[in-house]
Design a protein around this nucleic acid. Structure first.
Length: 286
DNA sequence: CCTAGAACCTGCGAGC
DNA sequence: TGCTCGCAGGTTCTAG
């Protein structure tokens, strides 16, 4: 389940194995994988041909490959099960291979987008002056971005009438945080997921952001988290950060701080994991 | 405008 | 053995 650290690992893989190569042709094997490309699969495949790939960029969970000498970029989102693989031509097609991109060189490898659940996909978009694809202009900077504005984030939390985990997952406020790292950061900060954002003091917001950054940097250091074969990095290697998760997936296991059994609660069609002692529920549920 | 919740999608494992 | 059902969850759309 790729969040910011996993996507960044993929971005680095693309920088190493795909940047500065010229596209020969692209093949769309499943139209849903390019549904965000409104002009359709044929248009997507056609317009890639002949272009040289620039240096890959990322914001939150989105990454994109600029096409050199154009104002366009190939935007990628991995959804929940998407993978970008660089494979030798002779490797048989993966069961859920959705898009194949071949290059006009003799390196013998191609770029593949593989996605079981097809929540992710590729699309081609105009970029603005700062290089950002136009369709993700609403995505906030992520907490590892040097230009992320901690103070503006705090003011937004104070202004909103929502709860802290919802806010962490709101990509227009702070991007790159998903269900796993939200639970991890909240556990570290000893904050309950239903804490109203308007009650956070500036020091608490600062502390929380520190934990978000710490948990993401820790995941990055070991190459991203994965729980099964659904997520692999650009070379097909799984990450193994899950060994050091403190909250996510630990229902019934002792809290690593106080030994109280951890709980799981259904929340927004998913789950929240927390320690009932360290992370006290707010007095008034909003 | 703002917030909450459902829909989208497929494979896996538990339970019957 | 084979079926159903719950669960995994990021983003977008819709309802209130």
């Amino acid at each position: 389940m790729p969040e910011l650290p996993e996507v960044e690992v993929v971005r680095r893989g693309l920088a190493r194995w795909v940047a500065h190569r010229t596209v020969a042709d692209a093949e769309v094997l499943h139209p849903r994988a390019v549904r965000r490309h409104l002009a359709g699969p044929d248009d997507f495949a056609h317009r890639l041909g002949g272009h040289r790939i620039g240096t890959p960029s990322r914001r939150g969970k989105y990454l994109w490959l600029p096409l050199e000498d154009t104002d366009q970029a190939v935007l990628a989102h991995l959804g929940m099960s998407g993978q970008l693989l660089v494979q030798p031509h002779e490797v048989p097609a993966e069961k859920h291979l959705r898009i194949r991109v071949r290059f006009a060189d003799d390196l013998g490898t191609e770029l593949r987008f593989v996605d079981q659940r097809t929540f992710g996909g590729l699309s081609l978009h105009e970029t603005s002056a700062d290089g950002l694809p136009d369709v993700i202009a609403h995505i906030a900077r992520d907490p590892l971005d040097p230009l992320f504005d901690d103070e503006a984030f705090h003011r937004a939390l104070r202004r909103k009438r929502t709860t802290i985990k919802r806010a962490l997952l709101d990509q227009s406020l702070i991007s790159g945080v998903g269900n796993i790292y939200a639970d991890e950061a909240l556990w570290r900060a000893r904050l309950h997921y239903e804490r109203p954002t308007a009650t956070l003091t500036r020091p608490r917001t600062t502390e929380l952001l520190g934990h978000v950054r710490d948990v993401m940097n820790a995941a990055l250091a070991v190459g991203g988290t994965s729980f099964d074969s659904l997520y692999v990095n650009i070379n097909g290697e799984s990450g193994y950060f899950e060994r050091s998760l403190d909250a996510y997936g630990r229902e019934g296991l002792p809290c690593r701080r106080c030994a109280t059994p951890m709980r799981r609660r259904p929340w927004m069609n998913r789950s929240s994991y927390y320690c009932p002692k360290c992370q006290r529920a707010p007095r008034v549920t909003p």
